[in-house]
Amino acid sequence: MSQVTTAAATKPSTAQPKREGGRYVLGWVLHNVVWIWLIALVIFFGLFNQFFFTTFNLQNIMVQATVLGMIGLAVALPLLVAEIDLSLPANLGFSSAIGALAYSDLGLPWFIAMLVGVAVATAIGFFNGLCITKLRMVSLIQTLSMMIILQGALLALTQGRTLTNLPDGYVWIGQAAIGGWPIMPVIFVVALILVAVILRRTVLGRSIYAVGGNPVASNSAGIRVDRIKIITYTIAGFLAGVGGFLLGSWQMAITSNQGSSYLLYAIAAPIIGGVSVFGGRGNVVGVLGGVMLLTVIQVGLAIVSVPSFYVGMIGGVMIFIAVAIDAIRVRYFA
């Protein structure tokens, strides 16, 4: 800010810089709270049980983070345009079952069958986008009903059984390892980078942030808001489809409620990572942080042999603390 010559000299105060500095550090800490919390928990769990730092366990964390990561990334996209898609975990389960059945019942080659599954997931995303833009359905309710439909459809499709008739090619990616390290997380990393590039480097990404920030102004600025929302939902559906394939491949099975257990964690991960439920704010690095944090909490609690009756509650409290700290940051340091 330019200093004006006529301005009276302001009182010099020596105590000021120190206080501002302290505040700055606190602001920085709160800003990166997800990562600091993550590191703290890793150290904590590691000290508690040496097993936490074993290669096997770290590999386990990476694999677990992959599926949650794919679905968390998918959930983040509609959030960025100030909408929500609750049907993504159900979409993940349903579409993977379609892929598996296309192999086992229709006799398609496994790769084509897998693509059919991903295509179905993408189409469901597209359809959700159409409903909330062209029909002006409220996304919370529309995707909630879609979730129930898809969960029901999965149950009907599998008749309550678990699909285990998966070809070798299909399950390969979930099991493959190079020098003992699983390669499934590579897919997640690729997805992360792709979404990051879309959001940061493309007209589409910029439009997504604009629409989430202020849809009315975006329209006046020449952005076709409905189109952007539909594309966003479609990409989210695609990511869920890929996540469904990875989950099926890794577990070598598709249960009659595949994916459903991810719902709350999938929504919590991006929000913990700083994606605003009001739209327009958040980035891929934050989503990654949220995903890693939740995965470490899950795996860590299992390892330190907390009695299983308490796992849910303690995990919930840890998430609560992360969200509360973030809320304090927004309240006092934004």
């Binding site: 493309t202 007209v203 910029r206 439009s207 942030y209 604009a210 989430g212 920030g213 202020n214 009315v216 102004a217 975006s218 329209n219 006046s220 600025a221 020449g222 952005i223 327009g280 704010r281």
Partner: peptide, 23 residues
């Protein structure tokens, strides 16, 4: 209401209606 995207930067707002020209 329909002028700026308040959550975005000055630069991002200025280019918002001319994105095709800078891409």
């Amino acid at each position: 209401r329909d002028g700026n995207i308040a959550s975005m930067s000055i630069g991002e707002n200025i280019s918002l209606s001319s994105l095709a020209a800078v891409a």
